[in-house]
Protein backbone atom coordinates (compact mmCIF):
# COMPACT_ATOMS: atom_id res chain seq x y z
CA UNK A 1 0.00 0.00 0.00
CA UNK A 2 1.33 3.43 -0.87
CA UNK A 3 2.23 5.76 1.99
CA UNK A 4 -0.55 8.24 1.07
CA UNK A 5 -3.10 5.43 1.11
CA UNK A 6 -1.72 4.21 4.40
CA UNK A 7 -2.02 7.73 5.80
CA UNK A 8 -5.59 7.87 4.45
CA UNK A 9 -6.29 4.57 6.22
CA UNK A 10 -4.99 5.94 9.46
CA UNK A 11 -7.03 9.14 9.12
CA UNK A 12 -10.20 7.25 8.20
CA UNK A 13 -9.93 4.86 11.11
CA UNK A 14 -9.04 7.54 13.64
CA UNK A 15 -12.20 9.26 12.48
CA UNK A 16 -14.31 6.08 12.50
CA UNK A 17 -13.08 4.86 15.88
CA UNK A 18 -14.65 7.99 17.33
CA UNK A 19 -17.58 8.53 14.96
CA UNK A 20 -18.96 4.99 14.84
CA UNK A 21 -19.34 4.44 18.60
CA UNK A 22 -20.73 7.97 18.95
CA UNK A 23 -23.21 7.46 16.12
CA UNK A 24 -24.18 4.08 17.53
CA UNK A 25 -24.67 5.44 21.04
CA UNK A 26 -26.57 8.47 19.75
CA UNK A 27 -29.23 6.20 18.28
CA UNK A 28 -29.77 4.41 21.60
CA UNK A 29 -31.84 7.05 23.48
CA UNK A 30 -34.12 7.51 20.47
CA UNK A 31 -35.26 3.92 20.80
CA UNK A 32 -39.01 4.14 21.22
CA UNK A 33 -40.65 1.83 23.64
CA UNK A 34 -44.31 1.22 22.80
CA UNK A 35 -46.52 3.88 24.29
CA UNK A 36 -48.51 2.06 26.89
CA UNK A 37 -52.15 2.74 27.67
CA UNK A 38 -55.09 0.65 28.74
CA UNK A 39 -57.05 0.03 25.52
CA UNK A 40 -60.57 1.35 25.42
CA UNK A 41 -63.21 -1.35 24.92
CA UNK A 42 -66.90 -0.91 24.11
CA UNK A 43 -68.93 -0.46 27.29
CA UNK A 44 -70.50 -3.63 28.66
CA UNK A 45 -73.72 -4.05 30.56
CA UNK A 46 -73.52 -3.98 34.36
CA UNK A 47 -72.53 -7.22 36.03
CA UNK A 48 -75.41 -9.09 37.62
CA UNK A 49 -74.83 -9.33 41.37
CA UNK A 50 -75.01 -13.07 42.00
CA UNK A 51 -72.08 -15.14 40.84
CA UNK A 52 -73.24 -18.71 40.30
CA UNK A 53 -70.23 -20.43 38.84
CA UNK A 54 -66.72 -19.63 37.63
CA UNK A 55 -64.56 -21.65 35.32
CA UNK A 56 -61.00 -20.79 34.35
CA UNK A 57 -60.50 -22.22 30.90
CA UNK A 58 -56.93 -21.24 29.95
CA UNK A 59 -57.34 -18.24 27.71
CA UNK A 60 -60.64 -17.18 29.25
CA UNK A 61 -62.48 -17.06 32.54
CA UNK A 62 -66.22 -17.68 32.41
CA UNK A 63 -68.62 -16.49 35.07
CA UNK A 64 -72.26 -17.37 35.20
CA UNK A 65 -74.17 -14.59 36.92
CA UNK A 66 -77.76 -13.98 37.75
CA UNK A 67 -79.97 -11.16 38.94
CA UNK A 68 -81.08 -10.84 42.55
CA UNK A 69 -84.47 -12.21 41.70
CA UNK A 70 -82.92 -15.06 39.78
CA UNK A 71 -85.00 -14.41 36.71
CA UNK A 72 -82.15 -13.23 34.42
CA UNK A 73 -78.80 -14.78 33.78
CA UNK A 74 -75.66 -13.37 32.33
CA UNK A 75 -72.50 -14.85 30.91
CA UNK A 76 -69.39 -12.90 31.84
CA UNK A 77 -66.18 -13.71 29.97
CA UNK A 78 -62.75 -12.38 30.78
CA UNK A 79 -60.80 -12.91 27.59
CA UNK A 80 -57.15 -13.14 28.60
CA UNK A 81 -55.73 -14.30 25.29
CA UNK A 82 -57.69 -13.69 22.10
CA UNK A 83 -58.33 -16.54 19.69
CA UNK A 84 -56.26 -16.31 16.54
CA UNK A 85 -59.30 -16.89 14.39
CA UNK A 86 -61.07 -14.52 12.00
CA UNK A 87 -64.17 -14.75 14.15
CA UNK A 88 -64.96 -15.79 17.73
CA UNK A 89 -68.68 -16.04 18.31
CA UNK A 90 -69.91 -16.96 21.78
CA UNK A 91 -72.69 -19.54 21.41
CA UNK A 92 -74.85 -21.31 23.96
CA UNK A 93 -75.85 -24.86 23.15
CA UNK A 94 -79.01 -25.90 24.85
CA UNK A 95 -81.38 -28.69 24.05
CA UNK A 96 -79.63 -29.42 20.78
CA UNK A 97 -79.84 -25.91 19.41
CA UNK A 98 -77.07 -23.34 19.22
CA UNK A 99 -77.65 -19.68 19.87
CA UNK A 100 -75.11 -16.91 19.29
CA UNK A 101 -75.03 -14.43 22.15
CA UNK A 102 -72.11 -12.19 21.24
CA UNK A 103 -68.63 -11.76 19.83
CA UNK A 104 -65.17 -11.80 21.38
CA UNK A 105 -62.58 -9.51 19.90
CA UNK A 106 -59.76 -7.79 21.78
CA UNK A 107 -58.75 -9.12 25.22
CA UNK A 108 -60.92 -7.77 28.00
CA UNK A 109 -64.18 -8.24 29.82
CA UNK A 110 -67.41 -9.12 27.99
CA UNK A 111 -70.95 -9.66 29.27
CA UNK A 112 -73.74 -11.30 27.34
CA UNK A 113 -77.37 -11.80 28.39
CA UNK A 114 -78.40 -15.43 28.41
CA UNK A 115 -81.74 -16.77 27.22
CA UNK A 116 -84.28 -17.30 29.95
CA UNK A 117 -84.02 -20.68 31.61
CA UNK A 118 -80.35 -21.17 30.93
CA UNK A 119 -79.10 -23.28 33.78
CA UNK A 120 -75.93 -25.17 32.96
CA UNK A 121 -75.01 -23.73 29.58
CA UNK A 122 -72.56 -25.41 27.26
CA UNK A 123 -70.56 -22.44 26.01
CA UNK A 124 -69.00 -22.78 22.57
CA UNK A 125 -66.60 -20.36 20.95
CA UNK A 126 -67.21 -20.70 17.25
CA UNK A 127 -65.12 -19.49 14.33
CA UNK A 128 -68.06 -18.55 12.16
CA UNK A 129 -65.91 -17.84 9.11
CA UNK A 130 -64.32 -21.28 9.04
CA UNK A 131 -67.38 -22.94 10.55
CA UNK A 132 -65.59 -24.71 13.39
CA UNK A 133 -65.82 -24.73 17.15
CA UNK A 134 -62.58 -23.57 18.73
CA UNK A 135 -63.47 -24.04 22.39
CA UNK A 136 -66.21 -25.71 24.40
CA UNK A 137 -66.78 -25.12 28.10
CA UNK A 138 -69.50 -26.66 30.22
CA UNK A 139 -70.41 -24.00 32.73
Amino acid sequence: MTPPLRRAHRFIWLLLVVALPLGFLATRPTKQSPWLQEPVLPPQSTAMPVLLRTIDADSLVLNLRQSVRGTERQLEILLKQPFETPSAVVCIRQEGSRRAVGLLNAPGLYRFPLPTGTNRPLVEIVDDVHGRTVKTVQL
Binding site: E38, P107, G108
Partner: peptide
Amino acid sequence: WVRNGKGRENGY
Protein backbone atom coordinates in the same frame (compact mmCIF):
# COMPACT_ATOMS: atom_id res chain seq x y z
CA TRP B 1 -52.79 0.00 17.89
CA VAL B 2 -52.95 0.55 21.64
CA ARG B 3 -51.16 -1.72 24.13
CA ASN B 4 -51.09 -1.77 27.90
CA GLY B 5 -47.86 -3.77 28.00
CA LYS B 6 -49.54 -6.59 29.91
CA GLY B 7 -51.21 -8.42 27.06
CA ARG B 8 -54.20 -6.19 26.47
CA GLU B 9 -54.27 -4.66 23.01
CA ASN B 10 -56.84 -3.16 20.71
CA GLY B 11 -56.98 -1.47 17.33
CA TYR B 12 -58.89 1.62 16.21
